[in-house]
Design a binder for these strands. Structure first.
Lengths: 138, 138
DNA sequence: GTTCTTGCAAAATATTTGCAAGACG
DNA sequence: CGTCTTGCAAATATTTTGCAAGAAC
């Protein structure tokens, strides 16, 4: 599905900023920060516009926001299969890359009495394959 | 265990700000924001001092920080039983309260090939018992 | 043509840093 | 007394808002 189709599908106006963001996050295998997305779009847009676009795209569940730390916020394309249960992400503490995981199962049970479950977000920290490989080098 | 004992145990200087923070988070059944902690200490300390104290206490695993959203950061006493595996928290999307959970099990498996697991953070969103009760009122 | 979006400037907020004065041990 | 901590001021950084010009449909 192309960026403009995604926008049409959600009854959002096709603007080049939105299309650009969608193209970038769709084609990336890892989550990207605002700065990274802006770089890949050759800095074409104002930060304000980015924030507003991110917000709109997030509200429409086209992308989702991953807050790894207060100064590490990333965005990823929202493959809606995940979004019903919640999301799981892997954060490499060495290279700070963030990837969506779709293979993590949360045992849904055991909330306190009378609490109502809606959605879970799981952030797994560790070391990614690339950084682990670095370690084994001489 | 009292606040000053906690500090001694970690070889940290006993200062009233640190003791105050520890007292407040230890005696609270939910996680508290900087503003809430400051209020309970009658606004005695500078925000800078809070940030520095939080950092020190977090580095020593005396408290932990829960980033619910970019503008919703809370702190809770770190009961170390949880900290080995990671933490699970419940965020009520209605009243924005945050509580530590100790009864959530994550199926530890299924990372991509060659990834190394270190720790997980789970944030469960939903409705807390108090807010649910509100709904059933007339 | 009407409505939504953008860019700019500016405000609000959160967080960090330098430095001198003060508290801890 | 030497070292770590505090408070103030100021610097950074992030995110939000108002408004007029411009684009989408």
């Amino acid at each position: 599905m192309k960026a403009n189709e995604v926008l049409n599908h959600h009854h959002l106006k096709r603007t080049s900023c939105r299309e650009g963001i969608i193209d970038v996050v769709m084609s990336s295998d890892e989550a990207l920060s605002e700065a990274e997305i802006r770089d890949r779009l050759q800095g074409c847009y104002d930060r304000t516009t980015f924030y507003r676009s991110f917000k709109t795209l997030e509200e429409n569940k086209i992308i989702h926001k991953i807050i790894v730390d207060n100064n590490l916020v990333k965005y990823a394309f929202d493959s809606s299969a995940l979004s019903s249960l919640g999301h799981a992400h892997f954060h490499c503490v060495e290279c700070n890359s963030v990837r969506c995981l779709n293979t993590v199962a949360l045992e849904k049970a055991s909330l306190p009495q009378d609490y109502e479950y809606a959605q879970a977000e799981i952030l797994i920290r560790g070391t990614c394959n690339k950084c682990k490989k670095q370690h084994s080098k001489p």
